[in-house]
Amino acid sequence: MGQLLPIAGAVAAVLISWLWSFLFAFAVRPYLRVKRLREQGVRGPINGSFWAGNMEEIQRMKMEAQDMVLDINSHDHLARISPHLVRWASLYGRVFMYCVGRKPWLFVGEPELVKQVLSNKFGFYRKIEVGAGLTALLGKGLVLTEGEAWVRHRRVVSPAFTMDKIKTMTRTMAECAQSMIENWREKEEVEVGVEFHELTADVISHTAFGSSYAAGKEVFSTQKELQKIILASFAKSDLPITKSLLQYLPTEKNKRRWGLEKKLRETMVSVIEKRMASRSESGYDGQDLLGLMMEACMNGEEGKTQLSMDEIIDECKTFFFAGHETTSIC
């Protein structure tokens, strides 16, 4: 019995320490951040509910914005997509704060302040933790890495995006566009938004994977399914238990997400392994993104510019998803 008391005391101390850390991170730290921002003159809406912050108000304004009729001659669509930002900026100025769950968010609309954040030369502004879902979708590429890892990734990836390299891909882009136009001639009606999504997927698949563009199309469809699952839960309150526990439980949604992640990785690994097996003395064939990136990996100094298989996959995920979503909308 005497031996159990020290063990019980140690367990109790660990539990108390964990409970205090949890309470501090969940309740005390957000309160202190909000207090510090208000002391510096940063205004914003009241914090809303304890659990959801301003999320209920944001969702209500977004539902009301769905009834808006936009001017087809105007590109001012922010009031429809993010009405809360437009409203709060008119009330509190170009710099204000609001809460998503228990976490305070700072909106910065002053150009000079935005420039300081984006330059970030001294590492003052860290990248946000996006969670397992978005990491699976975007990959731990340039968008999410920091420090030495970011420098190493950039050394490998940036040579593939020089103007000379991009020019070599213009013929492929033109051929994809010509194929789309020929297809339009056979249709009476064309849904332009859908067609441009398909065109962008076709172009990126060819320019990223070259002769393996069919696998690239499969990557796109898989990422699209992943995106729907992730966005469905994105607007929910970011409670710590949601971030640290629920995303790892074997729910139907999580099992579907894990299956898609596995399929995505296996498709990319298959393409990369085939490319590695076909490497000649002169290097990797083709001027697609994957070949250029793998060539940079092989030519770099050991430990400085080389990327692992998983890191190459992550960069491909970033290029596929980010490139597709931005280009197809533009």
Score class of each variant (00 low, 15 high):
residue 304 K to N: 07
residue 305 T to R: 14
residue 49 S to R: 07
residue 186 E to R: 15
residue 278 S to R: 02
residue 301 E to D: 10
residue 321 F to V: 02
residue 211 S to K: 13
residue 159 P to D: 08
residue 199 L to H: 03
residue 262 K to S: 12
residue 120 N to C: 12
residue 137 L to A: 09
residue 228 K to P: 00
residue 106 L to N: 06
residue 285 D to G: 08
residue 307 L to A: 12
residue 259 G to F: 13
residue 179 S to K: 09
residue 26 F to T: 04
residue 29 R to F: 09
residue 312 I to T: 03
residue 13 A to I: 00
residue 236 K to W: 14
residue 271 V to G: 05
residue 275 R to I: 02
residue 74 S to H: 04
residue 328 S to I: 05
residue 221 S to I: 02
residue 244 S to G: 09
residue 252 E to Q: 12
residue 200 T to I: 05
residue 6 P to I: 05
residue 255 K to D: 07
residue 246 L to E: 04
residue 162 T to N: 14
residue 157 V to I: 09
residue 117 V to Y: 10
residue 27 A to K: 08
residue 33 R to Q: 03
residue 191 E to N: 08
residue 16 I to L: 15
residue 71 D to I: 02
residue 43 R to T: 01
residue 259 G to P: 02
residue 123 G to S: 05
residue 156 V to E: 00
residue 170 T to M: 15
residue 261 E to Q: 13
residue 158 S to L: 04
residue 226 L to F: 10
residue 289 L to R: 02
residue 107 F to A: 12
residue 274 K to M: 10
residue 257 R to L: 15
residue 268 M to Y: 06
residue 93 G to E: 10
residue 55 M to S: 07
residue 157 V to Q: 00
residue 304 K to M: 10
residue 88 W to C: 08
residue 219 V to Y: 04
residue 3 Q to M: 11
residue 180 M to P: 04
residue 173 M to K: 02
residue 238 D to N: 08
residue 301 E to S: 09
residue 248 Y to T: 01
residue 7 I to W: 15
residue 61 M to T: 03
residue 70 L to R: 03
residue 212 S to K: 08
residue 103 K to G: 03
residue 64 E to F: 04
residue 76 D to Q: 10
residue 113 L to W: 07
residue 71 D to Y: 06
residue 31 Y to W: 10
residue 324 H to Y: 14
residue 188 E to K: 08
residue 247 Q to L: 14
residue 317 K to L: 05
residue 25 A to K: 07
residue 55 M to R: 08
residue 284 Y to F: 15
residue 151 V to K: 14
residue 20 W to C: 09
residue 325 E to D: 15
residue 107 F to I: 05
residue 57 E to I: 05
residue 265 R to H: 08
residue 118 L to E: 05
residue 207 T to M: 04
residue 126 R to F: 09
residue 107 F to W: 11
residue 251 T to L: 15
residue 180 M to D: 03
residue 104 P to R: 07
residue 162 T to E: 01
residue 43 R to K: 13
residue 104 P to H: 10
residue 310 D to P: 00
residue 144 L to K: 04
residue 114 V to E: 10
residue 75 H to S: 12
residue 188 E to I: 04
residue 227 Q to G: 06
residue 138 L to C: 10
residue 78 L to W: 12
residue 125 Y to K: 06
residue 15 L to G: 12
residue 167 K to W: 03
residue 291 G to Y: 00
residue 68 M to K: 10
residue 13 A to D: 01
residue 328 S to M: 13
residue 127 K to H: 11
residue 65 A to H: 10
residue 136 A to I: 01
residue 35 K to W: 12
residue 311 E to T: 03
residue 309 M to S: 05
residue 95 V to I: 09
residue 50 F to Q: 04
residue 302 E to G: 04
residue 72 I to C: 14
residue 320 F to V: 01
residue 255 K to E: 12
residue 216 G to P: 03
residue 172 T to S: 13
residue 236 K to D: 11
residue 257 R to K: 14
residue 65 A to F: 07
residue 192 V to D: 07
residue 230 I to H: 10
residue 124 F to S: 09
residue 44 G to D: 06
residue 130 V to M: 15
residue 31 Y to D: 01
residue 319 F to L: 15
residue 147 G to C: 02
residue 186 E to S: 14
residue 210 G to P: 07
residue 195 E to D: 12
residue 133 G to T: 00
residue 313 I to V: 11
residue 83 P to V: 09
residue 62 K to C: 11
residue 97 M to W: 07
residue 14 V to H: 11
residue 228 K to G: 04
residue 107 F to E: 06
residue 130 V to I: 14
residue 80 R to D: 05
residue 229 I to P: 02
residue 167 K to C: 01
residue 209 F to L: 15
residue 92 Y to K: 04
